[in-house]
Simulated assay, not measured.
Amino acid sequence: EVRRQKADWQKQASIDFASHRTAAGLTAYEARGSVHLKTDRAETLKAIIADYVADRSANPNDTRIA
């Protein structure tokens, strides 16, 4: 049972990831604008940190992982 995700599509994506259907899980997130490709490692790390800090500021009581 998927507990952490609330939206049905996110629950299904979690099941896909757990069932080794990674492409299907990623496709669901990509379709909703949640997959962002960067050109290099430094750009990727900068984006991850910025997103993490912004989310922490907006939702200080939530949990997150990066």
Rank of each mutant, 00 (worst) to 15 (best):
L37G: 11
A18C: 12
V35G: 03
T39E: 12
A24M: 03
G33K: 01
A28N: 08
A28G: 08
H20V: 15
A31T: 01
K38E: 14
A31D: 12
D8T: 12
F17T: 09
L37C: 13
L26I: 14
A31H: 07
A31I: 00
A31G: 02
S34D: 11
A13H: 05
Q12E: 11
L26R: 06
I15A: 09
D40Y: 07
L37V: 12
Y29R: 02
R21C: 06
S19F: 00
T22K: 09
S14N: 13
G33S: 09
A24Q: 15
D40L: 09
R32S: 07
H20Y: 14
T22Y: 13
G33A: 08
T27G: 08
Q12K: 10
S14Y: 06
L26W: 03
Y29C: 01
A18F: 09
S34R: 14
V35W: 00
D8H: 09
R32D: 04
D8C: 06
S14W: 06
V35S: 02
R32Y: 02
H20N: 15
A23T: 07
K11F: 00
S14H: 10
H20C: 15
A24C: 13
Q12R: 09
D16P: 00
H20W: 15
T39M: 09
A13L: 03
A13Q: 01
D8S: 10
E30N: 11
A31N: 10
Q12Y: 03
Y29K: 00
I15G: 07
D40R: 04
A28K: 07
A23P: 02
R32N: 11
R21A: 12
S19T: 13
D8M: 09
T39S: 12
D16V: 03
K38T: 12
S34F: 03
D16H: 05
K11L: 02
S19G: 11
T22A: 10
Q10H: 13
Y29S: 01
A18M: 15
G25T: 00
D8E: 10
S19P: 04
H36D: 10
A24T: 10
A28W: 00
H20Q: 14
F17W: 14
G25S: 02
A24E: 12
T39P: 08
A18K: 13
D8V: 06
H36F: 12
D40A: 04
T39H: 11
I15Q: 09
K38W: 12
Q12T: 10
Y29T: 00
G25C: 01
T22G: 11
